[in-house]
Measured scan of single mutants.
Amino acid sequence: NNDALSPAIRRLLAEHNLDASAIKGTGVGGRLTREDVEKHLAKA
């Protein structure tokens, strides 16, 4: 659900052409954090 993404996370996802649903969020309520996105990028 993109409504739960902060603007910074949306921008980071867009810059790397990532789909938020492909990344498991570890923030409050399962929200994506910058660390989640960076860890996903490091794996790729």
Rank of each mutant, 00 (worst) to 15 (best):
N1K: 13
N1R: 09
N1H: 11
N2Q: 13
N2A: 10
N2C: 07
N2G: 13
N2S: 13
N2H: 10
N2M: 11
D3Q: 11
D3K: 10
D3S: 08
D3F: 00
D3T: 08
D3P: 12
D3L: 05
D3R: 08
A4E: 15
A4F: 15
A4N: 15
A4I: 14
A4D: 15
A4Q: 14
L5V: 11
L5T: 07
L5F: 05
L5G: 04
S6H: 10
S6K: 05
S6T: 11
S6A: 10
P7I: 10
P7E: 15
P7M: 04
P7N: 10
P7C: 07
P7G: 08
A8V: 13
A8E: 15
A8F: 03
I9Q: 04
I9H: 05
I9K: 03
I9L: 14
I9S: 03
R10Q: 12
R10N: 07
R10L: 04
R10V: 15
R10K: 15
R10E: 15
R11D: 15
R11C: 06
R11K: 13
R11G: 14
R11H: 15
L12I: 15
L12H: 14
L12D: 11
L12E: 14
L12A: 11
L12R: 10
L13G: 01
L13T: 01
L13I: 07
L13H: 00
A14G: 13
A14P: 02
E15A: 07
E15L: 07
E15M: 07
E15R: 04
E15T: 06
H16D: 03
H16S: 05
H16Y: 07
H16P: 00
H16M: 07
H16N: 09
H16K: 02
H16G: 04
N17D: 11
N17H: 11
N17T: 05
N17E: 09
N17V: 05
N17P: 01
L18Y: 03
L18H: 02
L18M: 09
D19F: 02
D19T: 09
D19L: 11
D19G: 04
A20S: 09
A20W: 06
A20R: 07
A20D: 05
S21G: 09
S21R: 10
S21K: 11
A22P: 03
A22N: 12
A22H: 11
A22M: 15
I23K: 00
I23L: 07
I23T: 02
I23E: 01
I23G: 01
I23F: 00
I23A: 01
K24L: 11
K24Y: 03
K24D: 07
K24W: 03
K24N: 10
G25L: 02
G25K: 06
G25H: 07
T26D: 03
T26G: 04
T26Y: 00
T26K: 03
T26N: 05
G27H: 02
G27T: 03
G27I: 03
G27F: 01
V28H: 10
V28N: 10
V28M: 10
V28P: 14
V28R: 09
V28L: 12
G29P: 02
G29W: 01
G30M: 00
G30W: 00
G30N: 06
G30P: 02
R31E: 13
R31D: 07
R31V: 14
L32Y: 02
L32E: 01
L32A: 04
T33Q: 06
T33Y: 00
T33F: 00
T33C: 03
T33P: 00
R34G: 07
R34K: 15
R34S: 12
E35K: 10
E35A: 11
D36F: 01
D36T: 01
D36R: 00
D36K: 00
D36A: 02
D36W: 01
D36S: 01
V37T: 02
V37L: 09
V37E: 00
V37G: 01
V37W: 03
K39D: 10
K39R: 14
K39F: 07
L41T: 04
L41N: 02
L41C: 04
L41K: 01
L41W: 04
L41Q: 02
L41E: 02
L41S: 03
A42R: 12
A42P: 05
A42G: 10
A42D: 12
A42W: 03
K43P: 07
K43T: 13
K43N: 13
K43V: 11
K43S: 12
K43Y: 06
K43L: 11
K43R: 11
A44G: 11
A44Q: 14
A44L: 15
A44D: 11
A44F: 13
A44V: 14
